[in-house]
Amino acid sequence: MTLYINGVEIEDTFAEAFKMWGARVVITAKNRKWALEAATKMTGFATSVIGCKCEAGIEGEVEDTPDGRPGVSVLLFTPSKDDLPKRLMERIGQTVMTCPTTACFNGLSAPDKVSIGGQLRYFGDGYQMSKVIDGRRFWRIPVMEGEFLIEEKFGIQRSVGGGNFLILGETPDVTLEAAERAVEAMQRVRGVVLPFPGGIVRSGSKTRSRYKFLIASTNDAFCPTLRGVVESAVPEGVNSVLEIVIDGLDIEAVEEATRVGIRAACIPGVRRISAGNYGGTLGQFQIHLHKVLEAA
């Protein structure tokens, strides 16, 4: 069965996604500028676990923050449960605690918890103090600016990483415009982040290489310049392919983001929407494009 949206072919394929562990960090600050500054730094260089040890992104602004100040929520994901507190510690310690006026709160109600403020408190060198407010313990760490407040424990939960779809367009410009529209729509979905620059990947990868020292290499099947060289998945007339990768706190959120993203990306000049998978052999989740779109 062939499915079209606005004349754009939706390939009958699936995105292959993986189990991850995720956390939600709420950063507040004196104003929106500084909350965003900390969140941007915290999610920097966190595009792919392949090279960055974690994947992270800004989920959105938070209206009702614990301290009533402007806030931003960040989602951070790692493949293993043990890695998550390490990455949170590194990033909160280096990018949120260092940022003027910020405070840092757990944003995820989950049975599994890891101690983050409870570890970062040692930066206070014995001068740290704690307060329990409404059953939640917070650490007050004296810093040169005043005091950094961080919640002791952060909830973590099983999550989904590597949801994706590919936009195959006639020109680089139209493909980028379609991707930008998709990202804009997907950013309104809670519980997901798009960890790559601007939410968009231009260098999608396959999980093998002819070089022994590389675990991933360019996704040659979707490289337009190699259409005549390899067994290509690029149809004639397609000259640019962009990928959108989605990490989410649960599969429902990733599917919802996939749905709204694809719908937004189907603009004139886009020939096909596809998705990246490994034949279903690696990932624990399969997000079938037709099924997801028909569910709407």
Binding site: D67, R69, K131, F148, L149
Partner: peptide
């Protein structure tokens, strides 16, 4: 010590 804005107090007063 100093004059400052204690973040925890804001949280506590809001509670």
């Amino acid at each position: 010590d100093c004059v400052y804005q204690p973040s925890f107090l804001r949280l506590m007063l809001q509670s």
